[in-house]
């Protein structure tokens, strides 16, 4: 098991490394040869073709690639390991959400997604005809009894010890069983090649090696920004929200924070009647909601938010 992981990690690192070299090659031109010559390794004779950002194929000796970047520049993140001793948890305060959309744009930016695509969605909800509508942001719920992980035939999606449900895009076969198994529609699929990162982006995403590079034909979803959480930083959606809707923290510490205020998780859920969406499904989400009472903003509907009428009312599960 471990050796498999390491192989995988290595191949991922190799890929990033190659991306780094390709960019460096274009940026410094012949300088690369000098850098490579400084290294004691002799040429292997194998050449590797790399795609430069302007779309040209560059061919370099494979010996130039590995020594070009020290390992320390690359994340050591193992996709199958969580942050030890933590159990990440999120609380979403529905009384504060006004569909500002900053969480979505921060998510798109963090994960190198196009503007119209993000792992977090803000849904218009209305529990019954008479009930007032409200906005409900939905990231992945990182369930403790995750239906998506249960059905994965190849272990491409799995639970980390820190509670996160992660995806290995090098393992995923694209059967999309997890997408139909998820009751919350949290997962998205790379139908197209357009989301695939180019070399420059691959280089930029280097510190985020734990995040998906949008491999065509594989599934991906909210990952709680693992590179942030490993550094004790809040996920980008939490940081971006102007209204403090999202609290994020560690269940072991029993503390969550929205950046401005830090509170006891148990106290918050007790005081504000926290609940989990569709609790009766038994999926045990790691994302809690605080009900949309005493709202801070009047509900303003957005044109074209929901194209199909008559489909909006749903039990919110609390």
């Amino acid at each position: 098991m471990d050796s498999k992981n390491n192989d995988l990690n290595d191949s991922r690192r190799d890929f990033l490394r190659k991306g780094f070299v390709a960019t460096a090659a274009v940026a410094t031109g012949l300088g690369l040869t000098e850098t490579a010559c400084k290294d004691t390794k002799s040429k292997t004779g194998d050449t590797v073709k790399l795609l430069s950002p302007d779309g040209k194929i560059v061919e370099v000796d494979s010996s130039m690639i590995n020594p070009a970047i020290p390992d320390s520049l690359l994340s050591n993140h193992n996709v199958r390991e969580g942050v030890p001793g933590k159990k990440f948890v999120m609380v979403i305060d529905l009384s504060r959400c006004r569909n500002a959309g900053k969480c979505k744009s921060a998510c798109s930016k963090m994960h190198y997604l196009p503007d119209n695509r993000s792992y977090i969605k803000i849904n218009k909800m209305q529990d019954s005809d008479k009930a007032a509508p409200y906005w409900m942001p939905t990231p992945c719920f990182h369930c403790d009894n995750p239906p998506c992980v249960k059905v994965c035939p190849v272990g491409a999606t799995f639970k980390l010890t820190d509670g996160i449900v992660a995806i290995d895009n090098e393992r995923c076969i694209g059967c999309r069983f997890c997408m139909v198994a998820c009751p919350y529609s949290a997962r998205v699929f790379n139908w197209d090649t357009e989301y695939q990162l180019n070399i420059t982006q691959m280089n930029e995403i280097k510190p985020h090696a734990a995040c998906s590079t949008h491999v065509t034909g594989t599934v991906e979803k909210c990952d709680f920004c693992p590179t942030n959480t490993a550094k004790n930083e809040l996920p980008d959606c939490v940081q971006a929200c102007p209204n403090g809707v999202f609290y994020f923290g560690d269940e072991v510490e029993d503390v969550v924070s929205n950046g401005d205020e830090t509170v006891r998780l148990s106290q918050l859920l007790k005081d504000k009647s926290g609940y989990r969406y569709l609790e009766d499904l038994g999926t045990k989400p790691r994302v809690y909601y605080l009900p949309p009472v005493n709202r801070q903003f009047p509900f303003k509907d957005v044109e074209g938010q929901n194209e199909t009428d008559g489909q909006t009312s749903h039990e919110s599960g609390h």
């Binding site: 190849v154 272990g155 491409a156 995923c172 076969i173 694209g174 059967c175 699929f189 790379n190």
Partner: peptide, 15 residues
């Protein structure tokens, strides 16, 4: 399948 060339994963990593 989105990645038909990974069909062998079913046998190598099957759950």
């Amino acid at each position: 399948m989105g990645r038909p060339e990974r069909f062998w994963h079913l046998f190598a990593y099957g759950r």
